[in-house]
Every structure is written in structure tokens, then in C-alpha cells.
Design a protein around this nucleic acid. Structure first.
Length: 275
DNA sequence: CTTAACGCCTGAAGGC
DNA sequence: TGCCTTCAGGCGTTAA
């Protein structure tokens, strides 16, 4: 589900709600998100820990604790965190998998309908596997047109698939890649290594514009995404191609949005604007 | 090094 | 209405 704007919205919400709080109990209602970890070692990990910092790494959420330990969460498709300030307020209902309770009686509910999300735990000063091989953040200054051309120089896959590859740039997902390519006016089927310098620059500019706007709107809610406050994003109002197959392009008004499959994922594009 | 395909899960939406 | 099929914003693993 969540891509960069949604994960960033969640991280900011989490910082607002749980920073500097001490965990007093952890309830595990489903073991799947723990992967290979045993329930007891998972629970013991958080004993007396205080949340020191929360950061986004691509689509990963990195929690660090005052002891130096860290936890990495990937929400995948349907994972979400919902905060509840005290025991009086209503409890989130369905698909609650893990509950963290804090010293002020507030609680963080982890929900995940499809059980794809993953939690991993690291001792202090440990190399974090998830961070290895993750491409730069879309807003990193390292990303320039020549840099992008170099990164995809041996990639014979479609440009759209290359942008979804987290080793290239981290944080983009299907919705935003479709929207970015439409804004850039580039055909998603273009072979990645054939991109010109001008096209690379257009992609970079469009990527930053689209993501900034989506961040301002607290992300996109199609079906699953909600912030930590359980409120929806609003960027879905501004989508120009995603899930608009058969509808007239809002930009040119001349062609209808096409839907195709690329690497088993849906791609939406305007054949007039993106040729 | 690269690419394509599969599997993990549940629920909603669409077709007939 | 109901049943069956397809689809969903992701990514790690595997095989070629």
C-alpha cells in the first residue's frame, strides 16, 4: 500500500504521538509479521525501551530506542499504525496484529489485513540489512540526470519497472511512478537505458513535484491507506492517470487513459501526452 | 551482473 | 441475488 508520501505521513504522525515514550507492554495477536522471531524474544526486545527517533528509509520505517536498538518495519500492502491516546477512546477494530502500550496509557495498534508487512529487530550498532542496496531518496542531491542515466545504463527493462526498483531510487511505488511519468510526458514502455538526458531531467523534476504535492495532501487513499490519526490522504483527488482507465485525460482532453500490464503490475498512461 | 515469474494473504470489485 | 474470477499501492526468493 504505502509509498513515500504515505510512509512519510505515517512517520510524522508517529513522531508526533510516541516520541520519548516508554513501552510498557507488547501484545502479539498474530506471529506472521515477526517472521522468524519467536514471540517471546520479540516482546522481550522492547522491555523498558524508550522511543528515541523514527525515520523513513525508502518505504521502510526505522524506529530507534535509547538503548541503541532498532526496529525496521515495512508496511507492504495493507500494514498501518493507528494511535489511540488513552483507554477511553475507541479501539481500532479489524486485523489488529500487534499492540504497543506506552507509559502514559496510550497505545499504538498495528493493523495488517493481508499479513505481508514485516518487522525486524536489531541490536545496537548493527548493520541494518534493509538499508543495504537501497537507492537514494528522491529528494537526495545525489540524484541528477547523468547519475540516473548511469544507474540504468545496463537495464533493458521498461522505464516504469526501473523506477519501481528500490535499488534505483527508494520510495516510489506503482501509483506515483504512473503519475510521475505522466507529468514528465514519457512513455512508461520506453526501455530504461534508452532514456535521454532531457528525459531523465524531466523525470527527476516531475518526481519531486508529484511527491511534494502528495506529501502536502498527506498521501493517497485508494482503499487501504490511513494516517496514524486514522484519517485518509487526499491526493487521490489529484491523480491524473492512476485508476482512470478509459477516462479522458485531464491534461490533453484528447485521449483516454490506457491500462497495460508491465512486470505483472498495472500501468496507466495517456497515449497522447506520453508518446 | 541481468530478467521474469512466483508466492505470500485477505477482501473487494467485476463479470456472468 | 450468487458464484466465480480477477485484482490490489510490494518485494524477497528462485531460476535461467
Amino acid at each position: 500500500m504505502p509509498e513515500l508520501p504515505e510512509v512519510e505521513t505515517i512517520v510524522q504522525g508517529l513522531r508526533h504521538c510516541i516520541l520519548a515514550k516508554q513501552i510498557i507492554s507488547v501484545q502479539v495477536r498474530h506471529k506472521k509479521p515477526l517472521g522468524n522471531l519467536h514471540e517471546q524474544e520479540f516482546k522481550n526486545f522492547f522491555r523498558r525501551e524508550i522511543v528515541q527517533n523514527i525515520e523513513r528509509w525508502g518505504k521502510y520505517i526505522h524506529f530507534s530506542f535509547t538503548s541503541g536498538k532498532s526496529m525496521i518495519v515495512h508496511l507492504r500492502m495493507t500494514g498501518k499504525f493507528v494511535y489511540r491516546s488513552n483507554s477511553g477512546s475507541p479501539q481500532p477494530a479489524a486485523h489488529i496484529r500487534i499492540i504497543f502500550t506506552f507509559n502514559d496509557k496510550s497505545a499504538l495498534y498495528f493493523q495488517d489485513m493481508r499479513l505481508f508487512a514485516t518487522f525486524s529487530l536489531y541490536p545496537p550498532h548493527h548493520t541494518i540489512r534493509e538499508k543495504q542496496n537501497l537507492g537514494p531518496d528522491p529528494f537526495a542531491r545525489q540524484i541528477t540526470a547523468p547519475w540516473f542515466i548511469d544507474v540504468v545504463k545496463n537495464r533493458k527493462i521498461a522505464l516504469k519497472s526501473a523506477l519501481l526498483d528500490q535499488h534505483v531510487i527508494s520510495g516510489l511505488g506503482n501509483i506515483y511512478v504512473c503519475e510521475i511519468l505522466h507529468k514528465a510526458g514519457i512513455d512508461p514502455r520506453l526501455t530504461a537505458y534508452k532514456i535521454t538526458r532531457g528525459q531523465a531531467q524531466k523525470i527527476i523534476n516531475s518526481m519531486r513535484k508529484v511527491l511534494k504535492l502528495a506529501l502536502k495532501y498527506n498521501g493517497t487513499t485508494i482503499r487501504d491507506f490511513n494516517g496514524v490519526d486514522n484519517k485518509s490522504g487526499r491526493f487521490q483527488q489529484l491523480l491524473r492517470v492512476y485508476q482512470r482507465a478509459g477516462k479522458l485525460c485531464k491534461t490533453c482532453g484528447q485521449a483516454s487513459i490506457q491500462k497495460i500490464k508491465q512486470a505483472q503490475r498495472s500501468t496507466f498512461f495517456c497515449p497522447h501526452c506520453q508518446s
